[in-house]
Design a protein around this nucleic acid. Structure first.
Length: 424
RNA sequence: GGAGAGAUGGCAGAGCGGUCGAAUGCGGCGGUCUCGAAAACCGUUGUCCUGCUUACGCGGGACCGGGGGUUCGAAUCCCCCUCUCUCCGCCA
């Protein structure tokens, strides 16, 4: 969420910037400003009375100590009315505070100045392409056929055990999955990330901290009896490590990497686009998260993008990097790069990573701040995260792109992890 | 699942209903001493809201797990909730 200070000071600028996200902010902002000023007025009056109240109470204490009982009783008379008024004011404040909070939470993050305008995926800007897209013969199979042919992932078995979207990885398929996870984690460690293995169930506070709650609770699996949520991404537990934390500037950037399974209820559409591994309820992902100094967060973003790119290059997959336009960006992001790899048999791009800078938007919710050495005041940090990488579509692309009569060839960098060179 | 104990500042740990934002110790920061460091000594040390203001400033308010209540006054008393710990049971 945006800070109230900023809304107060930069009303026009915010309204202007949010147009890039196709968001009409004027009405909400003016409502916020109105609520804010009445809030402050009430607080000011209430604080004054509270101060008076405290003064009288101290007096009464002193009088009683000196045995002046009747004077103390007289002084009490003055407090009743004050007390009542303070109570009235504080009751008046409650709905205003709530409204204010509810309105502020509705405002999306401001897009970075470099974000292009646009309404949807068509307006995203391709900033880079890599790897060669080769023409493949029509005999090339989509991955859902390949996994059956080699019996490495079993959807029907998953349906038996759980339901649709919960595949069972078997044999070399399971081994490939584990190899990719290890490879991604090792690469991250080499790049300076600190590995963490967090819980995959989180409480309500954590869900709120990263913004899944209260609005998107339908997208998470909920364990009702304990009121926990299954994480939709490692971003949730890993970022929440820093909820209510004040870091020192020299600790920044904090760089964490985590593998977790991810759980998403989203039913979504169906058809070829969600077939096979394209969309699942449970999948594996390695996530990188940075907590950065506000002046240096775009350097962090660049580092993260380079890191993700290096992974895809090592896996030898054709890819492109998109800068998302305002209309295609998430509510919370200031700048997002999407990574897509080419899926040879499906003949389309599959999104495998999304790397974003949230600036202070998430930090304000999390109350994650930092202090400059010797400085008294706290400032909000910037938070960033990105997939490095999400597994299913990587697996899909690897299977489809590397197929041959002999079988599916495993990229060289993975062989030390899989222990085999070919799936056949 | 059963029984009990507890939740106070970065940590540890005090706290008769008023002078407690809170003793003390540790840690952190600054300084003295030193060629330098350690030790010792001195000083300092939370967060949020808000007004004046825009100063490495001053004032007011709030915060001792969370929420209510009693009271002129609550860290201290009462109620509810949450969480943590210990023991027993079960168990990877």
């Amino acid at each position: 969420m945006l800070t109230i200070n900023r809304i107060r000071e930069e009303r026009d600028f915010i309204i202007e910037r949010l147009k890039i996200k196709n968001f009409k902010a004027e009405e909400i902002i003016d409502k916020i400003l109105l609520l804010d000023s009445s809030r402050r007025e009430i607080i000011s009056r209430s604080d004054t009375m509270q101060a008076e109240m405290n003064r009288i109470s101290k007096e009464i204490g002193a009088l009683i100590k000196n045995g002046k009982k009747s004077e103390a009783e007289a002084a009490k008379e003055n407090t009743y009315r004050l007390k009542e008024e303070i109570r009235t004011l504080s009751e008046k404040l409650i709905p205003i505070d709530n409204d204010l909070k509810n309105e502020i939470v509705r405002l999306p993050n401001l897009p970075h100045e470099s974000v292009p305008a646009g309404h949807g995926a068509d307006n995203n800007v391709i900033v880079k392409k890599g790897g060669a897209i080769i023409d493949v013969p029509d005999t090339f199979l989509p991955h859902w056929d390949l996994i059956k042919k080699y019996d490495i992932i079993d959807f029907d078995l998953g349906i038996k055990l759980t339901g649709a979207g919960f595949p069972v990885y078997k044999g070399k398929g399971a081994r490939l999955e584990r190899a990719l996870i290890s490879f991604f984690l090792d690469e991250g460690t080499k790049a300076g990330y600190n590995e963490v293995l967090p819980p995959i169930l989180v409480n309500e506070d954590s869900g709120f901290g990263t913004g899944q709650l209260p609005d998107k609770e339908g997208q998470m699996y909920h364990v009702g009896i304990d009121n926990f949520y299954l994480i939709p991404t490692a971003e949730v537990p890993v970022t929440n490590i820093y909820r209510d934390v004040i870091l020192s500037a020299e600790d920044l950037p904090v760089m964490n990497i985590a593998y977790t399974p991810c759980f998403r209820r989203e039913a979504g559409s169906w058809g070829a686009h969600v077939r096979g591994l394209n969309r699942l309820h449970q999948f594996d992902k390695v996530e990188i998260v940075q907590i950065a100094h506000p002046d240096k967060s775009y350097k962090s973003l660049e580092d993260m993008v380079n890191h993700v790119e290096s992974l895809i290059i090592k896996l030898d997959l054709p890819y492109r990097i998109l800068k998302l336009c305002g209309g295609d960006m998430s509510f919370t992001s200031a700048l997002t790069y999407d990574f897509e790899v080419w899926s040879a048999a499906q003949k389309r791009w599959l999104e495998v990573s999304s790397v974003s800078n949230f600036e202070s938007f998430q930090a304000n919710r999390l109350k994650c701040r930092f202090k400059e050495k010797g400085d008294k005041q706290t400032r909000l940090v910037h938070t960033l995260n990105g997939s490095a990488l999400a597994l299913p579509r990587i697996v899909a692309a690897l299977l489809e792109n590397n197929q041959s009569e002999a079988g599916i060839k495993i990229p060289g960098v993975l062989v030390p992890y899989t222990g085999f060179e070919i799936i056949n």
